[in-house]
Amino acid sequence: MAITDDATSATTKTTTLTTPAKLYGKDLSEYDDVDVESLLAQLSPEEITILAKEVDPDDNFLPPDQRNSYECTKEATGPLNRKQLIEHINKQAIETPDQPEFEPFVQGKVRGKKWVPPPRDARDIEAEEQIAIDMGEEYEHALNDATQEEIIDLAAILGFHSMMNQDQYHASLLNKGQPVGLGWDGITKSTQQKLFPMDPPNNTDVEESIKRVKDDDSKLIDLNLNNIKNISDEKLEQLFAALPQNEHLEVLSLTNVGLTDKTALLLAAAIEKSKTLRVLNVETNFISPPVIVKLVQALLKCHTIEEFRASNQRSAVLGNKIEMEITDLVEKNSSLLRLGLHLEFNDARHRVAAHLQRNIDRIRVKRLNQRK
């Protein structure tokens, strides 16, 4: 009897079944229609508390004290006092004993893996050797024979902290083993100042100088009336009235002579007609900022003045408006090379300096062309 085995020709198929998620023996889909509010209403407060400890509601709108399971049973002690809180934390930290070490400390015993610095590159070592400072045999011999106190004192004077090791540095800070008057707290004697004699008084005869200006003396090129405080306004008016007719005076210095706005306006009118004046100095007087603007404006008509100084006047600060007016006038002046005025604002200083440099460069180029 022949038996045919069909199992050898059968095809085996593998089927993957997905088991639905279940909770307490039921599918999760069966809980969709359950009224959660009615179930919570049936629970007692103790059961709700137990449920809240096991479930953390993922709701950002709930405060943290209602989301976590920790409940503080202590009564409130009042508002937050940061100082008392920090003192309490420090007290708890001091009173809490340290955790005992499992292995006692032994001096000289290395615990764990000792750090070994990596080998340095030979090129770095050669570079350091090339820039090493050769102090010479005399200085090296002196430093080798110097005592610790002498090295500390020398480092304190020169500020070379690298000359000392750590023990010497801390000893210098505490002045250990140092004589009185040495070390960081020592008193350093200052260099004796040089005594310079006082400037001699200006003995220039004002009346004679005014007469020479009126007579157009060819030898009177530089007139210095600085620090002569007894010049009256009438004499200054006579001097300024004679300036337009003079054709030889080049330098006029009127520092600290008591110039006021009244006499300064006369000076402004005089320098407009001057033909040879190159340097005008009216520093340290009582000229107001608007009159200084008048003087700078007068320089536009006098094409010979190359240097004008008027700092240290009655008003220490000119102000933004006055400085901008002076800057605009200076930028229109093609002959002015130096200006002695304290300008507070950076814009005015930069513009004035740039324009004066352009005037200097233009005159230099003109001179070079004339030589060729």
Rank of each mutant, 00 (worst) to 15 (best):
E138K: 15
E103T: 12
L154Y: 03
A2I: 09
D5H: 09
T276N: 11
S334F: 04
D153H: 03
N90I: 07
T77F: 06
K113A: 11
L277G: 01
R278D: 07
T263M: 06
L225G: 01
N312R: 11
L223M: 08
L267F: 04
E247L: 07
H248L: 03
V34I: 15
N230S: 15
H88G: 09
N359Q: 05
P201V: 12
I50L: 12
E46C: 01
L174Y: 10
P100I: 06
M198N: 10
E250P: 00
Y169E: 05
N285W: 03
P79D: 11
P118C: 02
R364W: 07
D56G: 03
S172R: 01
T284R: 13
P57A: 13
P290R: 09
Q313D: 05
L265A: 05
T18N: 12
T304Q: 08
T276L: 01
R367W: 06
D145T: 12
S172N: 14
Q168D: 14
E140K: 09
H141A: 15
Q193L: 15
G25V: 11
N165C: 05
L318C: 05
I363R: 13
T304R: 10
D35A: 14
A2Q: 11
Q92D: 08
T19S: 06
Y139W: 07
N281R: 14
F345A: 09
N68S: 07
G112Y: 02
I131F: 04
Q313W: 00
D153L: 00
E138F: 06
G78A: 12
E140F: 02
S38D: 10
A21Y: 04
R349C: 08
G258N: 04
L300K: 12
F345I: 04
E306P: 00
I94V: 13
R82M: 12
K109E: 15
E54V: 07
P45Q: 10
E75I: 04
Q297C: 02
D217Q: 07
S69M: 06
D167N: 13
A241R: 08
P117Q: 07
E54D: 11
P179R: 08
L252T: 01
E250R: 14
L143F: 14
E344G: 01
A171N: 14
P179Y: 00
N227S: 06
S315T: 05
E323R: 05
F240K: 04
R82H: 06
T16D: 11
T284N: 15
P119K: 14
N202E: 07
A127I: 05
Y139A: 11
A122N: 03
V110P: 00
P79E: 13
L336N: 00
E247W: 01
L239H: 05
A155H: 02
L339G: 02
D56Q: 08
I151H: 08
F105L: 13
N203W: 01
C72D: 15
N346R: 11
T147M: 01
K22F: 00
T11A: 12
V206Y: 05
E101I: 01
Q192I: 11
A298D: 01
S44V: 02
S9L: 10
S209Q: 03
P97M: 09
G108M: 07
S38T: 14
L295Y: 06
I89P: 00
K235E: 13
H170Y: 13
Q148Y: 00
H303M: 04
L173E: 12
N203G: 07
M324R: 14
N346V: 08
G340R: 00
N165R: 06
L243A: 03
V330M: 01
P200A: 11
T191E: 11
K321Y: 08
Q297K: 14
T49Y: 04
T73N: 09
I326P: 00
V317S: 10
